[in-house]
């Protein structure tokens, strides 16, 4: 029908509008870029929002130090191709400074990202972080604002969020306070994959089915890497797998899959029976409210 946008065009237009509001209202924003599929959608949206100009913000990666090399290479190549500036804020630097203290050397590092993020926000004076979170990911996200207010300590207070009406966004903050802007709030995992297909976005290779050494642990497939070795009594298998999300090695698990193209992943996503986080984010299974808790502590 003429004059009626398809859902992907509508979602894209909404996301462009949100990004331009950030650029128009905030003095010093930054875009959080991990090399993951959601943040790659954000980069394409930023291109559509600001080209032929430069992005009115740098990109920033919160690096846990536990990365798949493919993703880091991809991150660096992508940044170079776009000609934009990348800031890498490293958890290992926070550990060296003593602001992050791990309980044990092999403890998953995802939840400590908040500390490094808040340090980087303070150091660079950012008043807004653009992130790729979606409301369909988790129930603590279902009530998240598109422009979410964080206080001086980076905390999210669900009872003290600004009402958000029409497409009017209030990104005003005092010094030290922060806005987290989520342009793809209204996207589902399926929307993300369809957008990747439509825009022919390149992704890190680990999103596609490949052979990998894994063990089965507590019902999850755990990849065997330098930081996640197999226990002596575990049997290592070489399996066809792909990753549905890309994060810290210690808490991101792949799924068994033969889908080696975006098209096949879409078909698999359509028939999948398990949510993205339930299947592949080992850290969200700990407690029913763990995402809500992490967000209150400054997580994006």
């Amino acid at each position: 029908m003429k004059g009626k946008l398809s859902h992907l065009d509508w979602l894209e237009s909404e996301a462009i509008h949100i990004m331009r509001e950030v650029a128009g209202q905030c003095a010093n924003p930054v875009l959080l870029f991990s090399g993951g599929k959601d943040s790659l959608c954000l980069l394409r949206i930023a291109e559509k929002a600001f080209r032929p100009g430069r992005f009115p913000f740098p990109l920033m990666h919160i690096d846990t130090g536990h990365n798949y090399p493919e993703v880091i290479n991809f991150r660096d190549n992508k940044t170079k191709e776009l000609g934009e500036r990348l800031i890498v804020a490293s958890l290992e630097e926070s550990m060296a400074k003593g602001t992050i203290v791990l309980k044990s050397a092999d403890e998953p590092r995802n939840k400590y990202q908040s500390i490094t993020l808040l340090e980087a926000i303070e150091e660079n004076g950012f008043d807004c972080c653009i992130g790729g979170a979606r409301r369909d990911e988790e129930k603590a996200r279902a009530k998240e604002r598109i422009m979410s207010f964080r206080d001086e300590f980076g905390q999210w207070d669900p009872k003290n969020q600004r009402p958000e009406l029409w497409n009017l966004y209030n990104a005003k903050v005092h010094k030290g306070e922060n806005i987290r802007a989520f342009p793809i709030s209204n996207w589902t995992e399926m929307d993300v994959w369809q957008y990747i297909e439509k825009e022919k976005l390149e992704l890190p290779s680990i999103y596609f089915a490949h052979k990998r050494d894994v063990v089965k642990r507590n019902g999850a497939i755990v990849p065997i890497t330098e930081v996640t070795p197999a226990a002596s009594d575990e049997e290592v298998e070489n399996m066809m797998v792909r990753f549905r999300t890309v994060g810290d090695i210690t808490c991101t698990a792949p799924v068994a899959s033969n889908a080696d193209s975006v098209e096949k992943i879409i078909i698999e996503t359509a028939s999948t029976l398990i949510t993205e986080r339930g299947e592949t984010r080992l850290d969200d299974q700990v407690s029913e409210a763990s995402m809500e808790q992490r967000k209150k502590e400054g997580y994006f």
Partner: peptide, 11 residues
């Protein structure tokens, strides 16, 4: 989740 149509409208 079971829909792969790219040309849905939004309601």
């Amino acid at each position: 989740m079971n829909d792969t149509n790219q040309n849905n409208t939004v309601l």
